[in-house]
Design a binder for these strands. Sequence first.
DNA 1: ACTGGCACTCGCTACAGTCGAGTGCCAGAG
DNA 2: CTCTGGCACTCGACTGTAGCGAGTGCCAGT
Lengths: 340, 340
Amino acid sequence: MSLDDRKLAVLRAIVEDYVATQEPVGSKALVERHQLGVSPATVRNDMAVLEEEGFIRQPHTSAGRVPTDRGYRLFVDRLSRVKPLSPAERRAIERFLAGAVDLDDVVHRTVRLLAQLTRQVAVVQYPSLARSRVRHLELVPISTTRLMLVMIADTGRVEQRLVELPAPILADDVLDLRRLANEKLVGARLSETPPLVQALIDESPPDLRPAMTTLSTVLLETLVERHEERIALAGTANLTRGGLLDFHGSLRPILEALEEEVVLLKLIGEVEPSTLRVRIGDENEIDNLRAASVVSTGYGPGATIVGGMGVLGPTRMDYPGTIATVRAVARYVGELLAQN
Amino acid sequence: MSLDDRKLAVLRAIVEDYVATQEPVGSKALVERHQLGVSPATVRNDMAVLEEEGFIRQPHTSAGRVPTDRGYRLFVDRLSRVKPLSPAERRAIERFLAGAVDLDDVVHRTVRLLAQLTRQVAVVQYPSLARSRVRHLELVPISTTRLMLVMIADTGRVEQRLVELPAPILADDVLDLRRLANEKLVGARLSETPPLVQALIDESPPDLRPAMTTLSTVLLETLVERHEERIALAGTANLTRGGLLDFHGSLRPILEALEEEVVLLKLIGEVEPSTLRVRIGDENEIDNLRAASVVSTGYGPGATIVGGMGVLGPTRMDYPGTIATVRAVARYVGELLAQN
DNA sequence: ACTGGCACTCGCTACAGTCGAGTGCCAGAG
DNA sequence: CTCTGGCACTCGACTGTAGCGAGTGCCAGT
């Protein structure tokens, strides 16, 4: 049942036309718009085979063909040619990201940029704490029984938590706490901290131990255990392009999914090797997103990956373009992070 | 042309029915469902007057009546009875907010709670920096030429900025910088800082002056001038209830507006006296929101106001219920903030 | 293996007809 | 003067029918 080259060419043509026009494509239009070198009748025969194999389908008996999820999959895997970014696009990316002053700023700019370039919904995960190292811990006394714990990670992320101490504490003791914590934890991956924190408590002088214990609890519980991930989102208005023809007529499930941080993390957070990932329609594990496709990738300074980013759109999307954009933006952001 | 009591009762009935059923309401249905004590014909005459005055209109010649923006306005101002929250709702609010550990946490919980209770889009502004006082400034050395400036406001907000120094600095000098800045600025409103900062620079010892100048610049530029407001959003999926009948069939403009922080701030940020504000349809200054209504209010500990919150929904919304909920949530959050 | 021809399917649009909710108006009663 | 019942009218929603045309599947011929 191997599909010969022409059948593949037909599939590619169908995908490209359908993505462009949003309308089922028929055999006649196909031969007119692409140099296939054969007659409509031949194309029809090929189409029949493609349909039998599940790569395309007919919405109604007398309509043209539309790619199935499986068809898009084949297209993405074997038929799409890489679409290099235009110099203008490259420059836009560079210029847009160059002005960033801050990690927050970088993330915000990135997500807006992605949304704008792909004209879809963009999602960017802040550098994951689990993959970060502690650069510095700071303790700011708020009152005699309250400290603000500020953690700065090597990725630029800064998190703060209020620590409610069991008993009033002296300013000097705060300094000691800070010194001890920094000695022990600076340079460590956050995912490796639990044993270190335990040692930290054990080795503290007895009079500091209660304070150190609550401090450590806050650290572990809020920063490590429920690994605090943050996410930025932009471009939801792009869901309305294509006027509800995409997404089976209801944005509801999509919007619902986009409100759940957990879902978003699942979408873009599973950063395996640095490879880019495309999930098409049914391939999505999240039921609400069965009508959508997601293109995601990891990013980070150099070869290491500290977080994920991606875009979400209709299954009928411009895969080559989207893939190229996501990849390029991720690379630029990685370079930007490496500079710090 | 004064409208007598019965005409007002008719208007109220129309609004209530339309909000409940989402369908134009006719004279017959009206007398059946409300104890108006008159015949349909009489109601029809009243309706004719109400229409003439611009409070209701007919979508089509042979359809029932629908309230206009002006009709809703009259309803909100004079006809809606306060709908007290059920004990269950009160308890839900209390329980939901009680577990908050953090300002971030409070804001997130609040916005989700509002969205859930009103079943609409909720917006909550973080306590405005402009209305906050400086509680503490902390300087964390990152390298010899880089400091992390952490500002803690009395509202619980914490902001950090990276400061790139013009020349390497000694650890002791950092401590001096910190001491000077805190002496001068702690307790000041952020909006009052510019002259203080200038004095701070002038009074610094000469060797610290370059560092203090850059530090001050960062402080002023990123925290004061472009007054850094933050906003949380939830419940966008609720826009799809009522299946596009609301919002003139397109969510696009609404979603676009919700992505613009500036727009959102305009929506809920104009916190005048502690009063609650309702903007109905056309009354909204933002064109994209001409099809929506916004109920917003300020909140803060005690009588002071530190930020705004509100919900956005179709003009056809349950005003009494929404108003009651927004007011109640704002009060609870205020109490919560007062406790710290 | 490809092509041209042909009969067939079926969604889309237009049009006519019917139905009914709802209206405006008017004359009469209280 | 206000309210009511009655009545003619409007017009959107729905239904059924018919014609059109894009697109298909199949088959015989090259």
